[in-house]
Design a protein around this nucleic acid. Structure first.
Lengths: 338, 338
DNA sequence: AATAGCAATGTAAGCGCATACAATTCTTGC
DNA sequence: GCAAGAATTGTATGCGCTTACATTGCTATT
């Protein structure tokens, strides 16, 4: 950390007390204009930079928000965090991030670090966390919220969407189109409530339509094109006419694999994604997918956290709606596909 | 911030002084084992969580790294930051990020905030910054490094690659294939030295081959598929046989636009990208592109920054090599394209 | 058995800031 | 021109921690 001038240097230079300097710094309105001006000049001349840690120690607030996410190598988290940071800063808060790599034990360690660091508010992703995480958070009085999921009986405030419910529209759409044998390329469900709920929601809705989802019609894979591309042939063995993918990246892999196999997409095989990445609209065939308001969610998380911190109340929950975007991978197109 | 137990609570409970508690906390080896154990028990019983801001204030170190990036909505930055965070944490440092939205004035404000916050090290992207940024940084003695670019006469240490030089291989490849009229879909160069250098490098290398790059063969656009798709037709008016794109996302847009126009990619129109996003290999046609070691760069930035902080020396620079990956958008393929 | 020498622990002084409270200066009404 | 009150500024304490230095307890050497 740099050796810089301190408040008392400024005070001395401006011929006032440190209290007055502090008041100028914090925009108190009980400083006479000429004095304020003098202090501000002294600050500028000395290149004075206030010390946040001293300030945090004195005020017991850090004006810092923490976010612990599984990865940034996923566009949806990256976009959400981008929006979260912007909104946080507009409110005068700084963002600290950490990556858990989808590991609950790592996440616990990170939560502890965030608490040490003294964040005023903390965001986690999803509702599946180590018990100790909940214990720590509840004991600490640091505001927290779980994003990307919404569940009325979640143990923590939620700002997100209903991952299970989101799949209903997808299933309904495919069933409407006459599909009876439907397979799933799910994300890896272990320790991931979003992936789990999407699979559960799919199964539930299929049952609601009187359709079965046999074990061999479900494959769990990493969120990567390569993994999806490799997995599709296995799924095709169970003779499905439609594949529901855990997200858009998986859907891309499925599309490429289907093309490799010489299938006509939507005619021979319908494919759906999740997230509505910007590519999904542009690709040919364009991807039928579920739109998720990642940026909105991110900024809402920041704003609700700050609201909660400043009003000294628990974070308000917020449910976002998702919507199905029907595109070429399910309803065919005029474009020729291999 | 939470009201938690303090070091002196622990000291009292364990029947020792706060100094001993502090020593246990910092792993000093001059505490007797039985005393250490007693203190650790007291910590656990009281759910003691050390206060980082007090610690920072006392030690004059924050064990925090800052990163100011243009956006997270770009996979390459997201991946780099992901790696940076992981490496930083392995070294015991926390990452604070801020988004500048490619705006130098915002960036200046963020640098100032980072300095207030007391980061021990700071990463910026590229070598184009507000003069005041350099002044502040040099005055502050906070270690800093500029990533994603490498230039021997840069005013700051650099950990990145030579954006201009990287284009030489692209141009050489296209010229080798016989292309004479080459167009460029560049990123927006204003305030972006990476985009500028890629364009400059392209022009230089074309000249080296005796080829001209007329104004109407260059279009600057945002890094988005949509913008690229919209811009390609304009470029085609100048009758180019190859298009060099500022990054892979732009290349995707160009590919889609070419397909829309009924062109045979690589035969009628060659296209190149930059970044080697994971999609680029999978897409048909696959994208000829420049591979950038984003994750390596991110972790190197973290490690070099921490090295510099802990050794009290300037950050060492590091030059990464890029390499051309020749794929279907330039050398044709057995796949049929529309 | 006395003591030098070291190991383990305690004491106390800040780190830079905010803020309660005290002291001072300025208004205003008369 | 004076007092009461408002406006402004100063004084001094403490936030929770680290650490230089002082002190105590122990071991080993003679």
């Amino acid at each position: 950390m740099a050796k810089t001038s301190t408040q008392s240097d400024v005070a001395q230079r401006a011929g006032v007390s440190t209290a007055t300097v502090s008041r100028v710094l914090n925009g108190s309105n009980l400083v006479r204009d000429d004095v304020r001006k003098r202090v501000e000049e002294a600050m500028a001349e000395l290149n004075y930079i206030p010390d946040e840690s001293a300030r945090s120690l004195a005020t017991r607030k850090s004006r810092t928000l923490g976010a612990i996410i599984p990865t940034l190598n996923n566009a949806i988290f990256a976009v959400g965090i981008n929006a979260l940071e912007q909104a946080a800063r507009e409110r005068g808060y700084t963002l600290v991030i950490s990556i858990s790599n989808y590991d609950p034990d790592s996440e616990l360690m990170l939560v502890r670090q965030m608490l040490e660091r003294g964040v005023d508010g903390l965001m986690l992703v999803g509702n599946h966390h180590h018990d100790e995480v909940y214990r720590l958070l509840n004991a600490s009085a640091v505001r927290h919220v779980c994003g990307w999921s919404h569940n009325n009986n979640a143990p923590s405030p939620n700002i997100g969407f209903d991952n299970a419910r989101a799949m209903h529209a997808v299933v309904d759409h495919l069933v409407d189109l006459g599909h009876q044998k439907i397979g799933v390329l799910a994300g890896i469900c272990q320790n991931n409530d979003r992936a789990t709920l999407r699979l559960d929601g799919t199964r539930q809705r299929l049952e609601h339509h009187g359709l079965d989802l046999p074990k061999q019609s479900i494959i769990q894979i990493a969120y990567s094109i390569r993994a999806a591309r490799a997995a599709l042939p296995d799924l095709l063995k169970s003779d499905v006419s439609a594949v529901i993918c855990g997200n858009d990246v998986i859907a891309y892999g499925a599309v490429f694999a289907a093309q490799d196999a010489g299938l006509r997409i939507s005619e021979n095989l319908a494919i759906t994604g999740f997230d509505n990445l910007s590519l999904s609209k542009e690709l040919r065939p364009s991807i039928t997918t579920v739109n998720v308001p990642a940026a909105d969610m991110g900024s809402t998380i920041a704003n609700y956290l700050v609201d909660a911190i400043e009003s000294n109340q628990p974070v308000a929950s917020c449910k976002f709606e998702t919507d199905l975007l029907v595109r070429e991978t399910t309803i065919g197109s005029t474009h020729k596909m291999i």
